[in-house]
Design a protein around this nucleic acid. Structure first.
Length: 407
RNA sequence: GUGCCUAUGGUGUAAUGGUUAACACUGGAGUUUGUGGAACUCUCGAUUCGGGUUCAAUUCCCGAUAGGCACC
């Protein structure tokens, strides 16, 4: 049977490292990897038209199963002709499985926990124990699936691996994800193991259901590696999933920052080389270099849009809050090196005015800039892998970004 | 002109004869990584002025000043 996607490696990083550049072919076009996947959770990259996305160099958009299932409903999207038609994006698309919402609406709901934990003391992470069961959650896990309480109207919904895949079939993205459980790093080891076993069973069920449908001929299914910060679990997960016939792989989890690179290395050393790997929910400049260096082909992250929308922009010299007093009369561009629409036409002063006046153009321009900044950075990383200048680029970019006074 | 009322951060409001005068917005500095929501965390900043009563006054009294209302 013909595969819905194919992946071709065009160049490798060398030096015994896992990094590579390639081309991922999908039913809606090619993706040059490494690539940054723009996040369009509810079938829209907030405030950005598909035409603008193309101008930004966006190659692929990621929407979310959970959100679209609740609103407007996957069957409606199917009846509209699928996500591509519905949202007027004819390029490659992915959908996340809803697995992350098990985390964000469950263990992490209303808590200080986010995808990247700041906690650096491993003892604390391990001893924190299971978060108190009385705390309100919108997601409850059992062996078979997850009960969600809609954040929109309180309706209860039960999502199983099969249901997640069914929804994703209706949505019709080119690449879809198995239903997984993203665990909190605060969970103890025994829970991580239990959750991982469950994620593996769900991966198998996702795959079996997917393969039983015609959609598997035009939609690729990615399995998701979990295992938290534990080497044994990460490697076990990579091996288990590598043994299943997925079209590609996601690397999931909630990490302490410094655990991320080791987890990626463990996993990518095991996953089949000829299939694409997607590091879920990452990242920022440092993380993109780390991922690319260690064999990640796809990244997605809400940071560029969330930050940009709320007034924080990337510059070559680090992050800059446009709300800062110093921006009020700063008539320079956001970033001298940037070729985006915002940088070509507007000053920091104007952007500061828009954000202070709460004008809607501010969030749009901030999103445009951060997306372009991130997409372009990953594009440059790709080129550098192909022409052998990766290390020089990394030193140059990260030196300016993290070593400068702008921050 | 007379009478009445009011006067607390930049703005709008709390409170009290006794620690450190509270809250919201604004201002300043941050956080944000498969988007529940945009939210959250710090932080600067005030008792109109002058007298008096009192151990102690932002609080009670008198006056000034300013504003509001009413009346002539």
């Amino acid at each position: 049977m013909e595969n819905p996607i194919s992946f071709r490696i065009e160049g490798k990083l060398g030096g015994g490292r896992l990094g590579r550049a390639g081309v991922l072919s999908t039913p809606h076009g090619e993706i040059k990897t490494p690539a940054f996947v723009t996040v369009g959770t509810k079938a829209t990259v907030k405030g950005i038209t598909p035409e603008q996305l193309r101008t930004l160099g966006a190659q692929v958009v990621l929407a979310n199963t959970y959100h679209l299932f609740l609103q407007p409903g996957d069957e409606l999207v199917r009846d509209a002709g699928g996500l591509h038609t519905f949202m007027h994006w004819q390029g490659p698309m992915m959908t996340d499985s809803g697995g992350f919402q098990v985390f964000s609406l469950g263990a992490a709901y209303g808590k200080e926990i986010s995808k990247i934990t700041k906690e650096t003391d491993p003892q604390l992470l391990l001893n924190e124990g299971t978060p108190d069961p009385d705390s309100p959650k919108l997601a409850k896990i059992d062996a078979d699936g997850v009960t969600f309480k809609s954040h929109i109207n309180g309706d209860m919904h039960y999502i199983t691996p099969e249901k997640s895949i069914e929804i994703q079939h209706n949505l019709g993205a080119d690449m879809i994800f198995a239903f997984d459980e993203c665990t909190s790093p605060l969970e103890p080891l025994h829970y991580q193991q239990e959750a991982l076993d469950r994620t593996h069973r769900w991966a198998k069920r996702s795959l079996d259901y997917h393969k039983s449908k015609e959609n598997s001929k035009r939609q690729a299914l990615f399995g998701i590696v979990q295992g938290g910060r534990h080497e044994e679990l990460r490697k076990e997960s990579a091996e288990k999933l590598a043994g299943m016939d997925f079209d590609g792989y996601g690397i999931g989890g909630s990490f302490a920052k410094e655990d991320m690179s080791t987890a990626v290395k463990w996993v990518n050393g095991i996953l089949p080389e000829d299939k694409p790997r997607h590091l879920l929910g990452i990242g920022e400049p440092l993380d993109l270099f780390m991922g690319a260096e260690n064999g990640v082909d796809l990244f997605d992250c809400v940071a560029p849009t969330r930050l940009g929308r709320t007034g924080t922009v990337y510059t070559r010299n680090g992050r800059l809050s446009l709300l800062r007093a110093s921006c009020v009369d700063d008539f320079s561009k956001i970033d001298e090196d940037c070729d985006c629409y915002a940088c070509m036409n507007y000053t920091r002063s104007y952007l500061a005015h828009l954000f202070r006046a709460k004008e809607m153009l501010g969030p749009l321009l901030g999103s445009i800039h951060n997306l372009r900044f991130t997409i372009r950075l990953v594009d440059r990383i790709r080129e550098s892998i192909l022409d052998g200048s990766f290390d020089a680029l990394k030193a140059d970019v990260l030196g300016a970004y993290y070593g400068s006074t702008e921050k």
